[in-house]
Write a protein that binds this DNA or RNA. Structure first.
Lengths: 240, 240
DNA sequence: AGCGCTGTGTGCGCTAACGTACGGAGCATG
DNA sequence: CATGCTCCGTACGTTAGCGCACACAGCGCT
């Protein structure tokens, strides 16, 4: 298993999987770079690989007929992109886009499926992860309904930060707006307020988080709810 | 397997499951009435049973700290309430409330889990269903973001109709508002517009759908998207 | 008949977010 | 150093939905 040049970080989920045919899986694992903006999966399309991000972050988006998009979940080094492939769907129901450039371990879906079919540990861990994903999506749905753009921006920054090493993220307001499913101007205003209060620093696609505690205070509960559920998952997995 | 007095309808998902220990499962299956408003699961609570609705409809709600709620999925005689119990979560992440009174087959989670662990057909079908649930939740999340109350009301009525025998549903505007996560007055207005145009008839908790095609025209795309994915699931299952 | 409860209609001011438009700032490129 | 492009700030009118308040209507109960 080779390492990415600048990314010693591994994928926690992948690390927790105790494959039967370990050598076989290892031989198939491939570390690939994921450039920002890359569409990993298109909604409704067939796919051959699953991705375990290490340093990259991938967003799952629902895209409407008129092109409007909404982020429904985020996957970083704590998860896998392509649960549909072992859940029995031959296609994925949402678009997967690289939100933050980095690396990911790529694995043939057939290999993972074969391991999954054998049941046991691998299956349990992957299903628990899918369960956590369900929670994340449910919370996102409710968040979309009830919370302001300001709150959601904070939530979004936090859940991105959690999946990065640094306190700086490379992301235009335009893209954030696409993720949240709001106007770009709305993000500009919300970000402006955060900057005025010394919470972040924003300049041409580079956001630096200066005061994370403040960010958490301004965020809606959704961040901590999802975070807590995710922590519970890992607690559970490490117990096994 | 006894039948409900006034409900010859079965549960399609349950019917599609080819249990190994068939006699054993049969012995445990119990047809129970689900009165409207019953909270089948509380969010975060431990649960011992899964439910396969026959004539009842159950809504999965996400509840916020301030009490605001949002429906994230609907389960009727095409699904099962409590996927978390075989997906490895000991608790459920959302509240399950009976939206329309009726019956459901109740099964001990341990019995279903035992069957599930054996892999094969039962596991495949249940996972495919979970996958469809994921799609439904994703679409709901996006719908909450982008569509009007009018559109969502139509969607909601349609997905309820699909799970009932009649064209009449018993449901106050107050409750619909809770499901959609909007104000009761908003529902009153939207329903008023539908009634003015002869699409429905509304009176003190009883809605009669008069013109389903019109309802579909006024609904957002989300209804048909979820419907199509669900149909695909059944096509897949019947092929097995 | 009268009471009271639940469910529905309506009105009004308010705010968040939208659509649109435009100007300017930073940065790379020739 | 000028050009061009991307990204960000701001402004303005419009609208959907909110919060609140209240009136009324159907229906069961005594």
């Amino acid at each position: 298993m080779q390492h990415a040049p600048n990314s010693p970080k591994q994928n926690r989920l992948l690390a927790a999987l105790r494959f039967r045919a370990y050598e076989h899986v290892l031989a198939d694992l491939e570390l690939v770079p994921l450039p920002i903006g890359l569409v990993v999966y298109e909604a409704g399309g067939r796919q051959d690989y699953v991705y375990f991000p290490t340093s990259s972050i991938v967003s799952l988006l629902n895209v409407m007929q008129n092109g409007a998009s909404t982020e429904i979940a985020v996957v970083g080094n704590d998860g896998v992109v392509g649960v549909a492939l072992f859940m029995g769907g031959d296609t994925t129901s949402s678009r997967a886009v690289v939100q933050s450039a980095g690396y990911a371990y790529r694995l043939h879906a057939s290999v993972l499926r074969a391991e999954f079919e054998q049941g046991g540990d691998v299956q349990h861990v992957l299903m628990r992860y899918t369960q956590a994903l369900l929670t994340q999506m449910a919370q996102t749905a409710a968040c979309n309904r009830h919370h302001t753009v300001d709150q959601q921006l904070c939530r979004w920054l936090l859940q991105s930060l959690d999946r990065l090493d640094s306190n700086q993220l490379v992301m235009t307001q335009e893209l954030i707006a696409n993720m949240l499913g709001v106007r770009r101007e709305g993000v500009t205003e919300a970000a402006g307020r955060l900057q005025d209060d010394g919470v972040i620093n924003y300049s041409r696609g580079k956001i630096t988080v200066l005061d994370r505690p403040k960010l958490e205070k301004r965020s809606c509960e959704c961040y901590s709810v999802v975070r807590r559920e995710s922590d519970r998952l890992w607690l559970h997995i490490s117990e096994v």
